[in-house]
Amino acid sequence: MSSFQTGQARLTGPGEDYQSQLAQAGQRLAQIAEHNAAGEHASRTLQVVEGLVVAYSGAIGRADSFLRSDRGSALGIAALWDAHRLLSAPDSGILAQLDVLAAQQRASLDEQLGHGWMSGWVVPLWALPAVALLVLLVWTQVFLRARFRRALNAPLIAATVLAGLVAAVLAVVVGHAHREVAAVDEAVAAVSMPADAFLLVGERKLGDLLAGQCAGQCGDAVDAFVGSLPATVAEPDRAIAVAEVGPVYERLAGVAELWVVLTVPALLAVAVLVVVGLRPRLEEYRYSSR
């Protein structure tokens, strides 16, 4: 917006920042498409956003073309207004559709965390038996020591260590998954605030251009837009820090598989070790009781 307002666009076009941010937007949308977690509905929303971005860059291109000539300033402002509507129209603009897309992805993450073995109420169902197993293993060794006067039972110790490790790893993984989703929310908030500040600066400049062209007679949409803007807007810091949160959904899916990959073989091993550890004592007990 600055380059259009100051007239720099006549020589520089919409500016390097715009070109760079548009390219980044394309890359980010491609990333979202690659890691989409929310199924067909979200794919449709994403396709709408991609189409809107094409229309938006077309409007900015027209504004650039018109504002290169003084004669075209009224058309240039009209094209900028088009671009603004494509970006910010309630419900149907790019930003509104991105909010819809974010909500769809977030709901999908919530669903994944809320179902299966990572959900809050399921955790006690596997955590309590795991703790009970550990307690029983320790109690058994104490009992064996007292009953058979054996100092150490290596297989039972190995079973105890293994069961403890599995329980600890699963607890850490569940905690990490919940923290990771929370980190996504923080990262989104961290990006949104400065992005909103940049948007407001551009909107303030567009508001000034529209006020010059309209004199309050451009209809309700323009009046509401100009009326909603603060009188002055501070320029935010130039950089928007984009946190790389990465494909959380896919990592969560990997974590979900961990349950089967880790626990089934580990519990089988624990069972085998328990049998191996107790069998001599059982044999001893059986022979001594005859």
Partner: peptide
């Protein structure tokens, strides 16, 4: 209403409201 320059940025639905 306004002038033709303002018509360029008046939404077609807002013209109906006017």
């Amino acid at each position: 209403r306004g002038d033709v320059r303002s018509a360029l940025v008046t939404d077609f639905a807002d013209a109906s409201k006017s």
